[in-house]
């Protein structure tokens, strides 16, 4: 009986390991391709060891004099948009979530219902009018034209997430602060925000990820190629190089994965927690 269980367990673990290896294979293939010299890339049968190896494709997409690949610039654009969106989402949703969780005022139910209801609105529905609006504001091809609409998309979700969290927090600390003479703003800033750190981190990562990875909005809202964020630059790199070689494309793809990979390795637990919060309370 015991032996049978062990065999089962070993078999299960082995199966999981094989599956995990298969799961990683595409990513390994991207890395391997990005390190090969151009002449070795299109080879049948496929070669999994990039030898001789080269960093030429990385140099090309990051620094090259060829103006086709502006991955370096796109990378910076994406960082600005990602960070900007994250900051804006954190500030606006935390400020909005606090009164919705802790204060009684007319319209509270309505505001909350509208916000939650808006989670059902697909982005595609506001695409055209949002473009018209951003054009009228003169924000096409600007950072604010990417950051602000992106933040507006995540805002409602942030409010929802933070409100749930604040509702679950014990109120005593806030009461104590109020007795010490703190006003609403001070209570929010000194007590509620610090206590909300775990969920703020989760929301921050969520907001950063969606801004970093968004594709459709920047595809239409940016006309100046030097303002393209990574996904758009990468997609165009694909068509640009399809007649040349996969090397630069794969180097670009690998580079685009780096920031979130770092965030993921550093804050693995936070992300899992964030996904958990977003999932279970959703």
């Amino acid at each position: 009986m015991q032996r049978g269980l062990d065999v089962q367990r070993v078999a299960l673990t082995a199966a999981l390991l094989v599956l995990a290896a298969l799961w990683l294979a595409p990513i390994v293939w991207v890395l391997v391709t990005s390190l090969k010299v151009t002449a070795d890339i299109v080879r049948v049968p496929p070669e999994w060891i990039p030898w001789p190896a080269t960093t030429a494709h990385y140099r090309e997409v990051l620094f090259s004099s060829s103006r086709t690949a502006r991955i370096g610039r796109a990378f910076l654009n994406s960082v600005v948009v990602g960070v900007g969106t994250t900051v804006l989402v954190l500030i606006t949703s935390a400020m909005a979530a606090y009164p919705l969780a802790r204060m009684r005022f007319p319209g509270r139910g309505l505001v909350f219902t509208v916000l939650v209801g808006s989670l059902m609105i697909p982005n595609a529905v506001v695409l055209v009018p949002q473009y018209v609006l951003v054009q009228q504001l003169g924000w096409l091809s600007t950072f604010q034209g990417l950051i602000v609409p992106e933040a507006a998309t995540t805002f409602a979700f942030g409010v929802f997430l933070l409100r749930q969290f604040i509702l679950g927090m014990p109120g005593e600390l806030e009461d104590a602060a109020r007795i010490d003479g703190a006003n609403a703003w001070q209570v929010f800033w000194r007590v509620v925000l610090p206590l909300s750190q775990p969920v703020l981190a989760a929301l921050g990562i969520f907001a950063f990820r969606s801004a970093w990875n968004d594709f459709l909005w920047p595809l239409i809202a940016v006309n100046k190629p030097e303002m393209f964020p990574l996904p758009v630059a990468l997609a165009l790199l694909r068509s640009a190089y399809s007649s040349e070689s996969y090397g630069p494309i794969m180097a670009g793809a690998a580079l685009s994965a780096v920031p979130l990979l770092v965030v993921f390795l550093v804050a693995n637990r936070r992300i899992v927690e964030g996904v958990r919060l977003s999932g279970l309370k959703g």
């Binding site: 103006r67 068509s239 640009a240």
Partner: peptide
Amino acid sequence: QQRLPWAD
């Protein structure tokens, strides 16, 4: 110079 695939 800005280089984009023709269709884009």
